[in-house]
């Protein structure tokens, strides 16, 4: 039944999967900037000091740990934001007008609020513990960041569902499916393919935005980088050290961006 109702979706094989040449070039460019800044810092530094590269190498494991914490927060936020966003998005296409309007209002509010402000609100408003359960600050940050993610995912879900031609709904109704069945068995399986690229895009954006949590005192990669800079007390390290953190994010996020692009092409509907 599903096969009959599937629209024509273009299916490239692996041919347009990651373009290795472009990604290698981009990576090489970032590494070049990184090395150049390190070399420049080295040239400016007095001979008695340890070399910039050796200092970076010394701190890299600690900063990488902080970076892993960013990833943990990004995964948690994405999971929570996706669950909430799916419900909110589906509520936006609900047949009940009141629900639809409320969901629309919530979505618009959280999509258009600054992330950092929502994060501050979550840190301030959420209690330190609920009953006997402690609410650590990283969890509050996850909740705070998941709000704008929720709003954006809701729009992705709404757009995905609406992008399926109405003919699909009508033919399914003609075959006596209930509304719930149509949504879960016919529309969503098709829409999910179209939602995945923007969803991944949202994830990459979120991952880079997780450095905001350093502002509310959580020990993430950016906090660790700052702490390392304080400990070294050398202003010439500022640029290379921040670039090292940037490189970590880049190496993680860039493949996601490439994969998103190729998936987009792969799932694009032929017109």
């Amino acid at each position: 039944m599903k096969v009959l109702l599937t629209p024509r979706i273009e299916g490239f094989g692996g041919s347009r999967w990651l373009k290795p040449i472009a990604s290698t070039r981009a990576l090489a460019a970032v590494v070049f900037v990184f090395l150049a800044s390190a070399a420049w810092a080295q040239a400016a530094a007095p001979a008695a000091q340890a070399s910039v590269m050796s200092v970076l190498w010394k701190w890299a494991p600690l900063i990488f740990q902080g970076f892993l914490f960013n990833l943990l927060v990004s995964v948690g936020t994405m999971a929570l934001g996706t669950v909430l966003g799916v419900f909110l998005g589906l509520a936006q296409v609900s047949p009940y007008r009141g629900l639809r309007r409320a969901a629309w209002a919530i979505t618009q509010f959280f999509r258009n609020a600054p992330w950092l402000v929502l994060l501050f609100y979550a840190m301030l408003i959420l209690p330190f513990q609920i009953g006997p359960v402690a609410l650590p600050s990283w969890l509050k940050a996850v909740i705070g960041l998941s709000l704008p993610v929720m709003g954006n995912i809701a729009e992705i879900v709404r757009g995905g569902v609406l992008s399926i031609p109405t003919g699909q709904w009508e033919s399914a109704e003609a075959l006596a499916f209930s509304r719930r069945q149509i949504l879960w068995m016919i529309i969503l399986p098709q829409a999910v393919k179209r939602m995945i690229p923007p969803w991944m895009n949202q994830y990459a954006i979120l991952t880079m935005a997780t450095t905001l949590i350093s502002i509310v005192g959580i020990q993430d990669g950016l906090t660790m980088t700052r702490a390392a800079l304080v400990a070294e007390a050398r202003t010439d390290l500022l640029v290379p050290m921040y670039l090292m953190l940037l490189l970590m994010f880049f190496v993680y996020c860039y493949p996601i961006a490439r994969a998103t692009l190729s998936l987009e092409r792969r799932f694009a509907v032929k017109i």
């Binding site: 020990q219 906090t223 660790m224 700052r226 702490a227 304080v230 400990a231 007390a233």
Partner: peptide, 14 residues
């Protein structure tokens, strides 16, 4: 503090 040398700051092992 872990970002206020020399009162409280990190060494590379964390």
């Amino acid at each position: 503090k872990n970002d206020y040398k020399p009162w409280g700051f990190l060494d590379p092992s964390g």
